[in-house]
Design a protein around this nucleic acid. Structure first.
Lengths: 207, 207
DNA sequence: GCCGCCCCTAAGCGCTTGCTCACCAGCCAG
DNA sequence: CTGGCTGGTGAGCAAGCGCTTAGGGGCGGC
């Protein structure tokens, strides 16, 4: 299976863990709607309509509209964390690991820009308890990236005077891909990943 | 007047162009509310309340809630454009101009992070006509930054293989400051500006 | 004194929102 | 056949929304 075909399969299976089928259709419809108009501008009638159901059917599978956002945020942030974790735990120099981390992380935010937009920009709509939980996942992702950059600074591969600041900038750069990326635009997710990996390696003085 | 005092004065005069006083208080209240909860989650009652008025008073000064967002977006984006323009039209090498552009642009997004958050992340709530108008201001800002980077690439100061892509990344980096910056955080706006100018100069291979 | 003007408020209209409730079709086990 | 369980529907409730309208207080000019 080629890389493109593999990612297409991942796309269709993005919500494979959500069962039964009706619950998965609702999640998928909600992601579309939230990404397009934002959480607060999306109505439960709109979500149910996109999933081909009556408004009341939503409440068989989810207690509230916020629970839908919570599920989406949880699954999405766990996926993002796994991507960062795979790069951080790989063998290789800090340069190799940082290149891989930025390439895959930025590429995911481009490829899944609808999901990414929701999980990165609609966080404030979560309940305080759910927000706290999701914020923990974000901190884990942050820590993994910071460790790669710290390793490179320690080994002398990178020239990074301010490791936390640089980490913040790199993460911000990758996350913001979700805001501007469009499938109709001139760049493919692969190209975005390659460009960003290149820019970030220069940022840390690795080339 | 010191730099900090000068910026404090700018802060209080951010909406000085809006008259009469009641209209200015409403704009100021709306920016706070929109930044905190988002446009759609903010009610006209909330805005009026923060401005110390009854809900109906809002409609004496603005035809709709959307018009408030439109005014805020217009003033904010014009300010951002002027900041970028001042750096672009200054004397000096491309390196000097890029450093200045990123430092002032990123600093503004930190210092005025409430306003910046509204104008950068609530654009989709504008009417189509207003959105088109504001998008023009954004394109102007983009062009100014791209020209600086192009100049540096042409003169050999920068090593930028993909000028539009690099421009996009730099702009994205600066704009996203508005999302994560907090006045309670460990960094001052000046420090963010200095850090980001440094990182971006490395990104384009100028150091 | 009083008129006209500007700015504001109390009350509320029509509508949409998130969510509920009474009810029901299909299906599988006994 | 029947009874219960799963997953659905149509109708609608209470609350909150953006916005309107009728009316009033204070102020300057005559």
């Amino acid at each position: 299976m080629g890389a493109a075909a593999q990612r297409a399969a991942e796309e269709s299976e993005e919500w494979a863990g959500v069962t039964p089928d009706a619950a998965r259709r609702l999640v998928s419809a909600a992601v579309e709607a939230f990404a397009e108009r934002g959480y607060h501008a999306t109505t439960t009638r709109d979500i149910a309509g996109r999933a081909g159901m009556s408004p009341a059917a939503l409440y068989i599978h989810y207690k509230t509209k916020e629970e839908l956002l919570y599920r989406i945020s949880g699954i999405g942030h766990e996926k993002a964390l796994r991507i960062m974790g795979a790069a951080a735990e790989a063998e290789g120099s800090a340069t190799d690991r940082l290149r891989d981390a930025v390439r895959t992380f930025a590429r995911w935010h481009a490829e899944h820009h609808t999901t990414a937009r929701v999980i990165q920009y609609e966080l404030q709509a979560l309940s305080p308890e759910h927000y706290t939980e999701i914020a923990g996942l974000r901190r884990s992702t942050d820590r993994l990236l910071r460790q790669i950059i710290q390793d490179g600074a320690d080994s002398g591969e990178f020239r990074a005077d301010d490791v936390p600041g640089t980490t913040l900038a790199v993460l911000s750069l990758c996350v913001d891909v979700a805001r501007w990326f469009s499938a109709d635009g001139p760049r493919t997710p692969d190209e975005v990943g390659a460009l960003y990996a290149d820019l970030v390696l220069r940022m840390v003085g690795a080339q």
